[in-house]
């Protein structure tokens, strides 16, 4: 039954997963193509900026400004936004749409449903990040970038874990309340505040406080340059596990809507 729910959810999510992953891959490819011709101009521009500001806009990333923009801004925002929207709707969305009434009368527990849906979201994010990684890797080869497939895989892994963390929060709030809007609002608000915290506090010399933000663990260790940071991935794993456990406990205690 777990496998059936997983298969159903994955099928339901196949189109948005493919579209978002494909869009990121194509966008990345053409972004690197453009950056090749503008590279020197952009590098001289970012070189004249203060170090913190350069870091803020991603100008100090391997591969230059465009890669930095893609890895520090566009891809994480796309993945996080997708994760939050999908996570909020995974369980609570079925209640809002009314399909939970029939689904929850089948011989499957609420917790199995929640776990299967969480696994489908994990798969979906991995596929999107995989397509993104593929587009980036091909572009790096074609346009002779300094980026390696391994570095890009490390960066993509951190982004997936970042998106999963916020998705897990959205899923947990949705599972606890049955209200997808509240779930996406809560997780989305946290994502925005923590992004600004992570990006702005270092500019004010408050780097230590930036560690409170999940975004710090996605980008702070500079995975494109230094590879995977297991301690940072562990921080994400902790957030995901805590959120999921909270969701599993809460969903079993309340009335279902729909």
């Amino acid at each position: 039954m777990f496998a059936e729910v997983l298969r159903h959810e994955s099928r339901q999510r196949a189109v948005p997963t493919g579209v978002l992953g494909g869009t990121l891959a194509v966008f990345t490819f053409f972004g690197l193509a453009v950056s090749g011709s503008l590279g020197s101009a952009l590098d001289s521009l970012t070189a004249s900026m203060p170090e913190a500001l350069t870091a803020f806009i991603g100008g100090d990333s391997p591969g230059g400004y465009v890669v930095g923009e893609i890895f520090t801004l566009m891809a994480p925002i796309a993945l996080v936004a997708y994760g939050i929207i999908a996570g909020a709707g995974l369980f609570a969305g079925e209640e809002r749409e009314g399909t939970m009434a029939v689904l929850s009368a089948q011989p499957v527990t609420r917790r199995s449903l929640l776990l299967a849906k969480a696994c489908s979201l994990l798969l979906s994010l991995v596929v999107i990040a995989g397509l993104f990684w593929g587009g980036m890797t091909v572009a790096a080869l074609v346009f002779d970038s300094e980026l390696t497939a391994g570095a890009l895989a490390a960066g993509s892994t951190h982004l997936v874990m970042l998106a999963l963390a916020f998705a897990a929060v959205a899923l947990a709030v949705g599972a606890a309340t049955g209200r997808p809007e509240l779930a996406s609002g809560t997780a989305g608000g946290l994502a925005v505040i923590s992004y600004l915290t992570s990006a702005m506090l270092p500019l004010a010399g408050l780097e230590q406080w930036a560690r409170l933000s999940p975004w710090h663990y996605a980008l702070g260790s500079d995975p494109l340059r230094n590879g995977i940071d297991l301690s940072h991935l562990g921080a994400f794993a902790a957030i995901i596990v805590v959120a999921l456990v909270a969701g599993l406990v809460a969903v079993n205690r309340r009335d279902l809507k729909g």
Partner: peptide, 28 residues
């Protein structure tokens, strides 16, 4: 048991047969 809710909602993107297959597999 078998159940149909008062305000029945099903998955709009699935066909009738896909819907029934999904629930049939869940039951086994």
């Amino acid at each position: 048991i078998g159940y149909i809710p008062g305000d029945l909602a099903l998955y709009p993107k699935l066909t009738g047969i896909q819907t029934l297959r999904y629930f049939a597999r869940l039951r086994g």
